[in-house]
Design a protein around this nucleic acid. Structure first.
Length: 483
RNA sequence: GGUCCCGUAGCCUAGUGGUGAGGCAGAGGUCUGCAAAACCUCGUACGGCGGUUCGAAUCCGCCCGGGACCUCCA
């Protein structure tokens, strides 16, 4: 099916075709591993995951998906510095080597991140690579060298900067977000990489070493410039190395449009001579109870915070997919509760599809429903419309009324849909592990009930409920379920 | 201060000029000894005030509220 995507570059929904036949190359700006990821970060990765799954399942493409790990920047350096309050015992002992400390610190949070995304069913197997920035230092240095050689970079104070005015003389800048060009101050430089979005200025490509910080040797134009890469540089380099330029789709949070992605474009074009990607896909932010999520408001959550509260990560996944990726998603606990109920309802429907069908079961046109739902997904990942369509179908088509053949077809379709949504179990209802004691009580109750000794039967049911199980009476028997 | 987005029934989420939107919660009903589950039925909502129009949630203006980027905790 033809996929269409909103492209930040063109500001409209464009039909998508990969540059190479049948294969989509896609890059996602990954986490900076300085702390546990929060649910706002998670939304961005979930949106990317949705996109790559829709490309595979609806578009029928092979997808080569790369998400980087930023393991060198101000925050990771600060966190791994000697005496840092952020250092945790699980990271081991701090050493005399800043680079080794950085490695221990970031690998701890990288591991935590991998665990987090796995819980949200962002599958490691779908990612063809998760490169760490520190493993591509020589390639980054090569890109800096290219940029300088072509006259778009210069050395100043042992750092290397991108010469924005030289660049603007030959190419447009501000393609992703209209930038007020008048605010550009010629020659002004920015060193900070704390997601530097200070001003439209010459941004740093290579940052000079400061005592105590990790550094890599770098020789440029006969000068020794020990230091580390600037933030924007890593993505430009790793895309080039792992996907090849140009590639198809670049995703990230909407905040990264400027300056990060804008600078990425400038670097890649200036250094490699290639406009790196054709589709820029940006997801909107997450809010909490209608407010910006921030530590000062006390509404700041990591995924782990929510798991501690007993929330099922798949309910979070389902809730987030319920909002369109270009709309703000309002995270509320009531919303998660609603998602839980809706998800469970579908799960029960799936279980019911596995049960024996009546002889007079009705037939449904599954192909038509599939077509409608998938075309909503194909049209700029419109999950809300797809879900509305899906639930309308479920409402109109009770599982219990379906013929055996239709049940198979519906099940097959839901299983296909679940290759994208990935929050349901397509298998039959798993047998409950019911303790012998509970089974005995339930059987006793059933016998009492057959004898119409209801008061005694109810007392037993109450006892069973206290033990955490519930009885559902059927026509000729009963089932026991865990509460 | 500049540029821009949003405000939909109790709660979420779609919908950009002209029948019904989807989910959760809630109400009534069928079934059941009772219940649970399942199934059926039920909600004329569009922040406020003006304006344009035969007709506005949808367009325009102002106001209120939330958010984004431009000036580092996404």
């Amino acid at each position: 099916m033809q996929i269409e995507l909103f492209n930040t570059l063109t500001r409209r929904i464009d039909p998508f075709e990969p540059l190479r036949d049948g294969e989509v190359r896609m890059y996602t700006c990954g986490p900076t591993v300085y702390d546990y990821a929060h649910i706002g970060n998670m939304r961005a990765f979930l949106c990317a995951d949705l996109l790559q799954r829709v490309l595979r399942v609806v578009g029928g493409y092979e997808v080569r998906w790369v998400m980087n790990i930023t393991d060198i920047d101000d925050k990771t350096i600060r966190g791994s510095a000697p005496g840092s309050p952020l250092w945790r015992p699980e990271m081991g002992e701090q050493t005399d080597d800043p680079r080794e400390n950085l490695r221990r610190y970031t690998s701890f949070y990288e591991q935590a991140f991998l665990e987090d995304i796995e819980r949200l069913h962002i599958r490691r197997r779908d990612l063809s690579a998760m490169p760490r920035a520190t493993e591509y230092i020589p390639q980054m240095q090569d890109l800096v060298r290219r940029i300088v050689e072509r006259g778009f970079g210069y050395i100043a104070g042992n750092s290397v900067y991108f010469d924005l005015s030289a660049w603007q003389a030959v190419a447009p800048y501000g393609r992703l977000l209209p930038i007020d060009l008048a605010s550009i101050k010629p020659g002004a430089r920015i060193d900070a990489d704390q997601y530097e979005r200070q001003e439209v200025t010459d941004f740093v490509l290579w940052k000079a070493w400061k005592p105590g910080e990790p550094y890599w040797d770098f020789e440029l134009q006969g000068r020794q410039l020990p230091g580390r890469p600037g933030w924007h540089l890593e993505c430009s380099t790793m895309e080039h190395e792992l996907l090849g330029l140009p590639f198809d789709i670049h995703t990230g949070g909407i905040d990264l449009r400027f300056p990060h992605h804008e600078n990425e474009i400038a670097q890649s074009m200036a250094g490699y001579g290639v406009d790196p990607t054709r589709f820029w896909v940006h997801n909107e932010f997450l809010e909490v109870e209608g407010q910006k999520m921030s530590k000062s408001l006390g509404n700041f959550f990591t995924l782990r915070d929510l798991l501690k509260q007993g929330i099922d990560p798949l309910d979070i996944r389902f809730a987030m997919l319920g909002a369109h990726y270009r709309s703000p998603f309002n995270f509320t606990f009531a919303g998660i509760e609603a998602a839980r109920g809706a998800r469970k309802r579908v799960q029960e429907y799936i279980y019911a599809l596995h049960e024996p069908a009546p002889d007079d079961g009705i037939h449904v046109d599954v192909a038509a429903v599939r077509e409608r739902i998938f075309s909503h997904l194909a049209h700029d990942l419109h999950t809300p419309k797809a879900f509305a369509e899906f639930f309308s179908f479920l409402n109109a088509t009770p599982a219990t009324a379906l013929s055996a053949e239709s049940r198979r077809e519906v099940l097959h379709f839901i299983s296909e849909l679940n290759q994208i949504v990935d929050v349901w179990d397509i298998a039959p209802r798993p047998p409950e592990e019911i303790p012998e004691e509970i089974r005995r009580l339930a059987e006793q109750r059933w016998q009492l009930r057959l004898q119409r000794r209801y008061a005694e039967a109810d007392a037993l049911r109450y006892q069973i409920q206290q033990a955490g199980y519930t009885i559902k009476d059927l026509r000729d028997g009963y089932i026991i379920e865990r509460l």
